[in-house]
């Protein structure tokens, strides 16, 4: 474990807790894409198949349970909670799941480290996580208004993967044969997808104006 990865995990943890807290306290999911949340639940499910087979550390297991629990709770709130679901904007959140899931699945079947079920699922989860934010970014572009918590959520989510890139660079130089180009490429693509959001987020923060994304 290194400081970059710990900071990345904590940032990721805070991002999902910020979202869960927002939905739980104000009983609203306005501006949140259910599609993205469902994709994240799928990312964690396919990423953590080894949850009960390989024990790495207490930290690893606890964090996996938190990410799984929080992502499914968020999906449950938006789908089932009698008050929250009313604020879900299904007419705007129209990104088709299979436009994202199918290409990632095909890519995982073509490009992976080992052709085993767990390894292909794990690779699929990496590709899926890289693009899972797209429905949320599309929704933000459409609804234009970004409330603070949603802005913070997307910012923290992007920051976590940027910190992971520093972690991979650090591990590449400190651990022999630590080579995982699939992880690195997926992580870089993921962070680049947030790049324009980051730009507008900093602009709004610097000029102290409300965050607006160009149409």
């Amino acid at each position: 474990m290194n400081i970059f990865r710990l900071a990345g995990d904590m940032t990721h943890l805070v991002s999902v807790l910020v979202l869960l807290l927002k939905i739980h306290t104000i009983k609203s999911c306005a501006g949140i894409s259910l599609k993205t949340q469902e994709l994240y639940a799928l990312v964690f499910t396919t990423r953590y198949l080894d949850l009960f087979t390989d024990y790495i550390s207490l930290y690893n297991t606890v964090m996996k349970l938190i990410f799984l629990g929080s992502s499914f709770s968020i999906v449950w709130y938006i789908r089932r909670h009698k008050i929250v679901r009313r604020s879900y904007d299904k007419d705007q959140d129209t990104f088709r799941h299979y436009f994202i899931v199918l290409p990632c699945l095909v890519l995982a079947l073509l490009i992976h480290h080992k052709f085993t079920f767990k390894e292909v699922m794990w690779t699929f989860s990496l590709y899926l996580e890289a693009v899972a934010i797209l429905p949320q970014l599309v929704l933000l572009q459409r609804t234009r208004n970004i409330d603070n918590l949603t802005g913070q959520y997307v910012f923290l989510l992007g920051a976590y993967r940027a910190l992971y890139i520093l972690n991979w660079i650090y591990r590449h130089y400190t651990e022999p044969h630590y080579v995982h180009w699939i992880t690195w490429i997926a992580g870089i693509v993921q962070t680049l997808l947030y790049a324009d959001f980051f730009y507008y987020y900093f602009q709004s923060w610097k000029n102290n104006v409300k965050l607006q994304l160009p149409a």
């Binding site: 990865r5 990423r47 690893n60 964090m63 990410f67 794990w122 972690n167 044969h177 995982h180 992880t183």
Partner: peptide, 10 residues
């Protein structure tokens, strides 16, 4: 064997 370590990441 070089795979195993990447699985220690979340």
């Amino acid at each position: 064997q070089f795979h195993e370590d990447v699985k220690d990441e979340l």
